[in-house]
Design a protein around this nucleic acid. Structure first.
Lengths: 212, 212, 212, 212
DNA sequence: TATGAATGAGACTTCATTCAT
DNA sequence: AATGAATGAAGTCTCATTCAT
C-alpha cells in the first residue's frame, strides 16, 4: 500500500542528534510554561538544554517555530500521561463527583494549567497556533470515559441522557471553569475541600438535569 | 548638615492633566489588548497617546503600574458599559436563552475577550494583579439580574432553585466557557447560529436541572 | 567712608527668598558630597530642599553653577567651623603630635573628606572650579598657628626653622596624606591608634629635621 | 519536567577574541580617565574600541565590572612601565633630589594622575574598588629602590635611618602630595623649575632629619 | 553539525531643562 | 517668584539572530 522505499532507507549521515532535540524541547517547555513566550530568551533555553544557541536554530529555525513545536509536544505528553479514572458503579452523583475530583486534579496540575495559560496568552499572536488549537478543556480520553458512563446510565434508565457527548462536555467545562476561577487560573493550588465542593456541585447539576 | 525643608511652602498644587492621563490609559489599553504586555512598548504607548515618554512615567511610575492601572480602568469601564438585559416574563427556557445570547455578545466582544486573555496571560507575573483578580466571568450586574429572575421563578413555582446564586454562576460559567472555546478565546467572532445554539443548550441544562 | 545709600535702601520687592537659597545650598551640598556630581539629580536636590525645581534654576541658573556655588559655600563653612587648636608649651615633639592629631580629626571628618574627593573628582570637568582651586590640605588658620609655633621654637633656639611656612606645609601635607591613604581617602574612619601613630611619626620627622 | 543537559558535550571552547578584549580595555581606560565613570557611556567605549555594544557586555558583564577591570589593568601597566631610576652614589641630597624628580615625572604623568583622580572619585561608590585599593602613591618598585638606597646610607654612616621603609614612605608621600597640589591634581603640567624645587625641598627635609 | 562570539535594534528608565500656571 | 508637568535626548542592558570556527 505504501510507496516503495527509495534509496538506502535512512540517509547515511543524519547527524542532528535526537537527544539534543529532546533536551531543547524539554528546556523550552519548562521555561515557556514558567515565564511565557516573550519573557523566555533563546539563550536561556539553550543554556538549560546544555547546547549551543545555533543548535536550537538548527533544529527549529526560529523562536516561534520552537514555540509551536513545544505546544505540540506538550499536547502529546499530556495525552500520554492521562491517568486512568475508574468509575465504580455506585449512584451517579457519587460516581460523577469522584470523576470530577479526578479530572480537577489533572487539569489544575501546574503543567496543564501553565499550558492552558500559555496557549491563551499566545493565541492571538501566532496564526499557526490557532490552527492547532484545541482547548485542554477537551480531554478526549476522559470524555470518552464519562460519556460512556452516562450512556450506560441512560441505558439502565437511572438517568435520561439523550446526548451523552453534549452532557459530558457541559459537565467537564463547568467543572474545570469553576476550578480555574477559584485557583486564579491554576496559579494557586486547589484545596481538597474546594475540589470536593466543586465536583459535588457540578455533578449535582448534571444529575438533576438528567433525572428521569 | 541635613538640609531642612523651608517651611510648609505652598500647598502642592497638582496640575497633572487628567486629559493626558486619560489619553495614556486609553492608548495603553488599546495596545496591551492588541499585543499583550511584553510586546507593547512604553514608547508606542506614549506615541499613540500623543505625549512624551516621561509624561507616562510621571503619571504612572513604571510600566507595570501602568498595566495594573489599565486593568483596573478596564474593569470600571466594563461595569459601566454593561448593557441592560431585559428578561420578559416568558417561559424560563426562552428567557434564559435570550439572556444567554445577550451575555455572550457582551463577554465575547473584542475588548472583554482581550482583557480576559491579557489578565490570564499576565496573572503569574504580577502579584498585584492576583490581588485584584476577579474573572470577567463574574459579572455582578448580569448575575444579579439572572439570579433575581431565577429567584422569581422559584417563588412562582415554575422552577425549583434552592440556591439562585450558585445556579446563576453555573449558567454563566458554562455559557461563557462554551463561547470562548468555540471562538478560540474570543479571537474569532461568534456566529449568531452558534450563539443561539450555545445559549439554548445551556439554558436547557439549567431548566432541566431546576424543573420541579 | 562708604558711598551714600541710593534710594530706599533695599529695593522694595526682591522676592528671591534667601531661606530657600540656603536650603537649596544645604541640600545640594549634602547630596553632592554623598553621591558625587553626576550621580546627584536636580530633582533630588529640589526634593530634599523642599522647593520646586524651577526655584533651583531661578537661583542658580544650571546644575554646574549650583555645584560651584556649593563648593564655594562649603569652603566658607569649613573655614568658619575650624576648631581652635591650642599648643601648650611642652617639648616640640609632644606639641606637634598633639597638633597633628587635632588636624587629622578635622581634615578626615566626613564633610571635609567628601569635599576633598568631590573637588578632585570634578576638577578636570569644570574650568571654573580650577580657578577657585585651593586644596583643603591648605588650612590657613591652622597653618598660621603651627608656623607661629615653629617660629617661636626657632627664636627660643629649641629648633632651627629657617622657613617656618615651608616646614609647616611639609608637616601638614605629610600628616594629611598619611591619614588619607590609611582611611581610603576618608572613606573609613581613622582609629585613634593610627591617628596617634601618624601624628607621632610625622612630628618626629619634623623635629629631627629641625633639631639644632 | 526538568530539562536534562545532554551529556558533557564538547568541552566549552572559549573563543572570545583577546584582541577585542584588549581594544575594549584600552578604549575604556582612555575614556574613563578623560571623562570619569559616570560621564563615560558604554556606547562610546564600544564605538572607540570598534566593537558592538554587546561585545562589551559579553566580555565584562556590566559597566561596573568593566570599570574595575580597567583599574586592575591600569595598575598592571603602571607597574610594568615603571622606568628604572638609577641612584648614583653622590651625596644623599643630590641623589634623593634626582630620585624625587624622576618619581614626580612618573606620578604626575597624565595617565597616572588620571588614574589617581578616577580612583579617588569612585572609591565611595564601588565596594570592590575599596577592596583593591592601593594608592598609586605606593609605588613598590621605586620604594624598594629608595629604601635600599637609604639603608646603604645608613650602613655607610652618612645618614642615620633606623626605619628605611618609613622614611621612604614619608619622602614619597610628601613629594607626591606637593606635586599634586601644585599641578591641580595633575590637571596642569609641572614645570621643571617646580619639579626641581619640590624634589630639593623634600630631599632636604629627609636628609636633615636623618643627619647623624 | 554545533559552538558561542558578535551584531544592531530596541527595551525600560532617568536626566537636565523649559513651559504653562 | 515659584511650582511641577512635560519634553527630547541619552543612559544601561537584553534580545533574536547570524557569522566564523
Amino acid at each position: 500500500m505504501s510507496a516503495a522505499a527509495v534509496g538506502p532507507g535512512h540517509p547515511p549521515l543524519r547527524k542532528k542528534s535526537p537527544a539534543k532535540r529532546a533536551a531543547i524541547l524539554a528546556a523550552a517547555m519548562e521555561l515557556f510554561l514558567q515565564q511565557g513566550y516573550e519573557r523566555t530568551s533563546v539563550d536561556a533555553i539553550a543554556a538549560l538544554a546544555g547546547v549551543g544557541k545555533q543548535t536550537v536554530y538548527g533544529h527549529f529555525g526560529d523562536k516561534e517555530s520552537l514555540f509551536l513545536a513545544v505546544i505540540a509536544h506538550a499536547r502529546e505528553i499530556q495525552e500520554t500521561e492521562r491517568g486512568a479514572v475508574v468509575l465504580d458503579a455506585g449512584d451517579p452523583l457519587t460516581d460523577l463527583t469522584t470523576a470530577g475530583e479526578s479530572i480537577l486534579s489533572g487539569v489544575l496540575s501546574p503543567t496543564i494549567s501553565g499550558l492552558h495559560r500559555l496557549t491563551i496568552a499566545e493565541l492571538p499572536h501566532h496564526p499557526e497556533l490557532q490552527k492547532m488549537w484545541r482547548d485542554d478543556t477537551d480531554r478526549p480520553g476522559l470524555d470518552d470515559l464519562v460519556s460512556g458512563y452516562l450512556r450506560s446510565c441512560d441505558e439502565s434508565g437511572i438517568l435520561r441522557v439523550p446526548d451523552p457527548a453534549l452532557t459530558t462536555r457541559q459537565f467537564t467545562y463547568l467543572l474545570i471553569t469553576e476550578g480555574r476561577v477559584v485557583t486564579l487560573q491554576g496559579t494557586v493550588p486547589l484545596s481538597p475541600t474546594d475540589r470536593h465542593r466543586i465536583a459535588t456541585q457540578t455533578a449535582d447539576l448534571i444529575v438533576r438535569a438528567c433525572r428521569p
